[in-house]
Every structure is written in C-alpha cells, then in structure tokens.
Design a protein around this nucleic acid. Structure first.
Lengths: 243, 243
DNA sequence: CAACTTTATATGTCTGAACATATGAACATT
DNA sequence: AATGTTCATATGTTCAGACATATAAAGTTG
C-alpha cells in the first residue's frame, strides 16, 4: 500500500488524488484478478482523510464500471474476465449513412403489435402488451439495402404520430427524454425468404446479413428492439476495435 | 416546485427519490431550455434533507451527462448532441471461446504463401513476398463452427514452427514483441461454396457469416490479416456498444 | 450432520456543518 | 467608457460521525 500517499498541499482536490491513486492501484494483477480492494475505512485512515472523500473517488470509478461494490463484502475490479485480450477492446461502429453516403427511405410503415415471447422477454413486459412497431426499407438512390423492424418500449410513450424521417435518437432524446447508452448487438447470416426478397428486390436464397440490436438507456432499461436485414452483397458491417 | 416531495418512510433511499424527482423535473421544457435548476441548498431545505443527499442524486445525473454544474452559477440540463454520439460508442466483442464454451481445433495447417493484390495492399509490401499462412477449422466437440485463414506480416518474424494451439496474441506478445492495438473488422454474409461446405460439414449454399479482420500494432502497422467463415446457424457475432 | 443464530465486517445512507472558489452583477474608480 | 473592486451566490471540497443493511463465516442447536 505504499503507493497510497496524498498531498494535502496539492492544488488537486483530495478526491481527485485518490481517484488517480485507485486507477493506478487497480492495474495491479492481484486486483484485476478479483482481490478485494482495501476497505474504505482503512484507506481513509491510511491517507488521513475522511471516508466520504474516499467514497467520492470510488464513486466515479464505480460509475465508470471499473469497480463494483458489494455491501458487506467489499469493492473489487469489475471485469473479472479471463486473460484473453480481444474482449477488452473498445470499438467504434460506423454505418454507411454516417459516412456521408446518402440513404433514403424506400418505405416506412408504422403499426401497433402485441408483444410475443421474444419481445416480452427483451422488454420485460407481459405478453400482449401493445407495442409500437416501425418497419422501413432504406437504401441508396439506386437500390434498397436494408429492411428494418423496430419495436419501441411502451415506457417511451411514442404515439406513432412522430416524424420518423428525422434522426431517431435525436427525436427520442429531445421529445421523449430517452437517452441511448448501450447497444447490444448480435450479427448473423441468413438466406432471403420471400418477404425479404420482395422488400429488398433480390432473389430468394440470397445471403442476408442479419442483425439484432437492443438499445438500453443509462439505467439499463431497454428502449428499442431492432431487427436489421442487410443485402450482404451491398453492405458490410464494419467495426474498429481499439484496445 | 410542487413535484418536490419526498417520503421519509419510503423503502427507497432519499437520494434515489430525489434522483427520480430530478429526472421528472428536467423534462420540463423550461429546464430543457437552459433555465437553472433550483439551487442545492434550496432543494435540500424544501425537502427537509441534507444538501449532501441532494448532491448524491445530482451527481448521478451529472455522471450521466444529463446535467451540468457550474460553480458560482448553478446547475442546468446538458445540451447533448446525439448525432455525434452514435459513432463514438465504445464497444466490446465477445467470442464464444471467451465465454467458457470449449472450442477445439479440428484442423490446423501452416504454409507459406506469396502476397497477392489484397495482401500486398493490406500489409503494404511488394507482391510475391513470402507470407506465413495459417488455416484452421475450429468448433465445438460436436461440430466445426468456423474456418479461419490468417496471414502474418513478415516483420513479425514467425517461422511456422510456433505453437499455434496456444493463445495467439499471448504468443506474439511474449515471444515476438508484437502487441495488438487496433482491430478493423468487416462483417458480411455469403453462401457456402464447395470448399467451405467441406470444411464446415454443411451444404453448399448454406449461409455463412464472413468476417475480415486486420489487426494493427500501436504504430498502426498491420500484424495479421484474418478471414473468418462462420456457420451462421451455429454462430452469432455479438457486440456491446457503449456510449 | 443439517439448520438456525450470532457476529464481525464492509458498504449504504444520511446528517449538518465549515470553508474554498468561480461567477457575474453591482458598484466605484480612473 | 473602460477598468477595477466588492459582494452575494452557487457549486466544490472536506470533515467526523451515526445508524442501516447485506454478507459470509463462525458458532449453536436440534
């Protein structure tokens, strides 16, 4: 615990110094491995500062999900993941319409559906709840590329009269106090059936890049359940993963 | 300020109640428009609780970037620009063998290839340079799932005698001073041809999740060029994208 | 031995206070 | 009019405690 040392005369606030200290401390393989951090009272005593000040620092790391606290037990590093490195890499997604490629809506249909098994599970609501469903086909001026189906959690309070041609999450944030925070996605490949071949103007049996996405707000509450069917010959899903 | 009202007998912690209250409060167009929230001392007095408890609540919203505080001035709703946010989402990838699912090598073939157009472009080397090529089929005990082709940049200095059954990037880091930093990936869907159907024991024309990956070191120098062909009926590529 | 009870421990919640510091407006000086 | 100063105000920081509560281990009982 020798790196535990603070400077009462520093220009930096104490909690900021403690925060830095903790960030360094949790680099230690011991702690990454799951060892409990020294408890708050001890840290405070050791540093000669108040427990509240220590908490102020740990709070920040807890919010960043670097630390997890457990009442009655202690505090430890959050990611108890295994040694493999690839899963810690942060990344950025880019979709074509964010790269300056002009996308247009081919069709846009709004309807009310009732929650089935999948939706009730994803949204944690009872079956048969009314759910706003948004379907659209989008693509380049020359051809359709993707067929989307979106379901929005009833909590958001969408009526179906909203303008869905505007950027979706701008609208949700400005008009429905809903902020997206996490998107969990699963990507797979399927073959086009009749419905998809009609929507995307391709042949039955053509390869389709299929993506499920659930978007969550900062409180881990689901906002949107989104199914995307991309023409695989015209679309590649690109990801940059950075360590 | 009539929505300001808390219940000292509630099971919910006070700061949690205050947090909920603030979330409701800041939906008010006045506040979204930039009006300063009531100051902390007033809120605390009004609610009959400590200023610290109020701060505990506002802290959370500040961490979430819903509120911004300014010393000497006050606290107001943050004006977020959603458009720039979507492409800044950090993410994490998880592959099956990192989730405790036991993967095994079905076949592993090492050979030397000469750089073609694609490779010379990716690796920025002249064509016909000798390149180490690694092919393998991996999967569950019951069935093969993925067919990989990896090319390693000559700079790394691999001889082909390395043990490729060990974790790859651990080996590169420990024995070849090569650290992975960025991975650029492109995901698409294709149909299985004869070669893939033979390798993965599926039918020709079955859907395949196809992934290209280039891994770079901290100096943006390419390390590995990797092509992955996944049985789409047995594999989903999952991503967590976090703001 | 299994089921219950106690207990030490760590975080969770909350208080009320004090002083520091950045801000902007009001006021005074050049 | 431009500049400098004072001052009220709001957040920023920090303190030292108090009591609540979840947890796991140790101890006790049937």
């Amino acid at each position: 615990m020798e790196i535990f040392n603070i400077d009462h005369n520093s220009v930096l606030p104490l909690h900021h110094q403690v925060e830095d200290m903790l960030r360094r401390l949790i680099q230690d393989p011991e702690y990454k491995d799951g060892k409990l951090l020294p408890n708050e009272v001890d840290i405070a005593k050791k540093l000669g500062i108040s427990r509240n000040t220590v908490r102020q620092a740990t709070n920040k790391l807890v919010y960043e999900r670097l630390l997890v606290r457990k009442k009655g037990v202690g505090t430890k590093v959050a990611n108890n993941n295994i040694t493999t490195k690839l899963d810690k890499w942060a990344s950025f997604t880019h979709e074509m319409d964010e790269k300056g490629v002009k996308f247009k809506n081919y069709s846009l249909k709004i309807s009310w559906d009732t929650a089935d098994d999948a939706l009730s599970k994803v949204f944690k609501i009872t079956k048969k709840t009314k759910i706003l469903k948004l379907e659209r086909v989008r693509g380049l001026s020359s051809e359709p590329i993707v067929y989307f189906i979106s379901y929005f959690h009833p909590r958001i309070g969408l009526t179906g009269d909203e303008d869905f041609t505007k950027p979706l999450y701008e609208m949700l944030e400005n008009e429905h106090h809903t902020t997206a925070k996490v998107s969990r996605e699963g990507i797979s490949a399927i073959l086009a059936d009749e419905e998809l071949s009609a929507a995307l103007k391709i042949a039955v049996g053509d390869p389709i890049l299929f993506r499920k996405r659930v978007v969550f707000d900062p409180g881990e509450r689901p906002i949107e359940y989104n199914l995307g069917y991309y023409r695989a010959d015209r679309f590649t899903y690109t990801i940059d993963i950075e360590k």
